[in-house]
Design a protein around this nucleic acid. Structure first.
Lengths: 146, 146
DNA sequence: ATCGATGCAAACCTTTTGCATGCAG
DNA sequence: CTGCATGCAAAAGGTTTGCATCGAT
């Protein structure tokens, strides 16, 4: 039924990592919440609220592990924290970050993929990944300001 | 003669900040070196080598200030450090980051600027700035690997 | 002479690590 | 049972801050 979870389990076991209660809970937290990106602190809060009080060292260690295994993707929003989002099924996407309310809107676009090829040829640089962020003022905030 | 420096001085004074020896030295370090981005530690090293031994608190405080005043631009390359580059004259540009040797190649392209307009319309989001990074393998590293 | 800027050291804050204990396979 | 995973507390590591002193205006 839950394909993501099956995939998660599979990746762990294939790489000889154990499926522990803590790893399960961390993964489920990413699946359950609307909010798409968490840092370690936010994740610890969520887990605590669900009476899954997991040590912070465990959370940090597993966020790092999950990222290495491709289960999570690490994001960076220019603050002090490392953020992570689920990476199992999501389409490649990017972020619009509101400078006023800090909300984050996801978008994706194919034009960019073509652009990538151009860069590869021009600079003889083999692109493996990219990060694209637009900073600005979102719809809601521009209404409030006016 | 030195338009950048004049501009720098102007910005400080306009905003009622004092032109100190330390601020001058920090600014000059950004102007003098080929390497385009520094973090605080690298900057402190450079200053020390030039017998301009400035306290690290001063460097951190001024990097932050210069960024607020638009003299520097803060960059983020997904490591523990904050990087800064001069922002007074440079054309808008982006970065190719080699995953192997960590070298950073700058590029700029106009296609992207058009793409931006499309995003603005589609998402009703007023773009103020953007950050675009491509991660991959640079020319030199792909030679060595083969 | 005044008040912002500096330098030192201590504090901060997120993340990492060492080590004894626990538990998945 | 074995050895990887966890949890605690301590350490690390970059950055920030308090406070006395310095120096730009």
């Amino acid at each position: 039924m839950d394909k993501n979870f099956e995939k998660f389990k599979e990746i762990l076991l294939e790489n000889n990592y154990r499926l522990t209660k803590q790893r399960e809970e961390i993964f489920k937290a990413f699946q359950q919440y609307d909010k798409k990106h968490f840092n370690a602190e936010q994740l610890l809060d969520i887990l605590k609220k669900e009476d899954e009080d997991i040590g912070s060292a465990t959370v940090y260690r597993n966020l790092e592990l999950f990222q290495r295994l491709g289960i999570l993707k690490q994001l960076d929003f220019n603050d002090a924290f490392k953020y992570y989002e689920l990476n199992l099924i999501k389409k490649h996407h990017h972020h619009l970050i509101c400078l006023n309310c800090n909300s984050i809107i996801e978008f994706n676009d194919e034009v960019l993929e073509n652009f990538e090829k151009k860069i590869e040829d021009e600079y003889d640089f083999e692109i493996k990944d990219h990060t694209i962020k637009f900073y600005g003022i979102c719809k809601n905030c521009s209404k409030e300001e006016s």
